[in-house]
């Protein structure tokens, strides 16, 4: 098992957290929705895995390249 950081590609704020610690996720499924420039932008899990950490909360500002979730893959 490796730790994989799930990265937001865009600067904005956290709109929704779609997963919780312990959830299994498939590759390419949305785990977080970031709101930027009035649009909801999904952050996708790069690989299948289990959510180990949620690093952000709804309303938090997020920068381009910032890790938002840690996955055990």
């Amino acid at each position: 098992m490796a730790d994989t950081k799930v990265i937001s590609e865009v600067t904005g704020s956290i709109w929704k957290v779609l997963v919780a610690v312990g959830d299994s996720v498939e590759a390419d499924t949305p785990v977080i929705l970031v709101e930027s420039m009035k649009m909801e932008i999904p952050v996708l899990a790069p690989d299948a895995g289990v959510v180990a950490e949620v690093l952000v909360a709804v309303g938090d500002p997020v920068s381009e390249g910032q890790a938002v979730i840690t996955l055990k893959t």
């Binding site: 590609e9 600067t11 009035k38 649009m39």
Partner: peptide
């Protein structure tokens, strides 16, 4: 617009 058409018109502040 500050959007990337190649990425589905995803907006990008900066």
């Amino acid at each position: 617009n500050a959007e990337d058409p190649e990425k589905g018109f995803m907006p990008r502040p900066g």
